[in-house]
């Protein structure tokens, strides 16, 4: 991987690698509140079925995951665990923030115990709006993430460059 890590990989090789990464995302589910049930529907319901997009749920540990879906209300008591989860994941890692609570606090915008957005703690790649978002919305979020992966320079993530969310 020396070639990739240095950013000197030829373009066709980069495309090929990205294609592979895009369709083999191990998704760690950090289900917190209502959104966790909709995420469960995405994983468990035959109507939505996330596996047809090449996303594999239930990795044994965050150390084997590429993507974490933060779904639900993040409270101040929960933040240290989320930080630790993010630090345990290997690079390159991606985060989807699912639902209004994880995006910005949602209906608890004036609560004393809720963190107003998980992006205060960890960088977020895709925000899925809704309270809770429909399962289709999470599927679209995953498709958007896959688009992002297919267009990125893998070296940037491996080198640990600061993530710029455009």
């Amino acid at each position: 991987m020396g070639l990739v890590a240095s950013g000197k990989a030829p373009k066709p090789l980069t495309k090929l690698l990205n294609l592979g990464r895009k369709y083999s995302i191990w998704m760690y589910q950090w289900g917190l509140a209502c959104c966790a049930i909709e995420m469960g529907a995405v994983i468990g319901s035959p109507r939505y079925d996330v596996m047809r997009l090449g996303v594999i749920p239930f990795p044994a540990s965050p150390r084997q995951a590429d993507l974490v879906v933060i779904s639900g209300t993040v409270t101040d008591k929960m933040v240290p665990s989320i930080l630790r989860l993010y630090q345990q994941m290997p690079d390159p890692k991606y985060v989807i923030s699912m639902g209004s609570c994880a995006n910005c606090g949602g209906p608890y915008w004036d609560s004393y115990s809720v963190t107003k957005g998980v992006d205060q703690v960890i960088p977020v790649d895709v925000y899925v709006p809704g309270c809770p978002p429909r399962p289709e919305a999470l599927l679209e979020g995953i498709v958007l993430l896959q688009e992002r992966i297919s267009n990125e320079d893998p070296a940037a993530r491996w080198r640990g460059d600061p993530i710029v969310v455009d």
Partner: peptide, 9 residues
């Protein structure tokens, strides 16, 4: 871990 302060809100 899921306390959102309903009674106060």
């Amino acid at each position: 871990y899921m306390h959102r302060g309903y009674e106060k809100l």
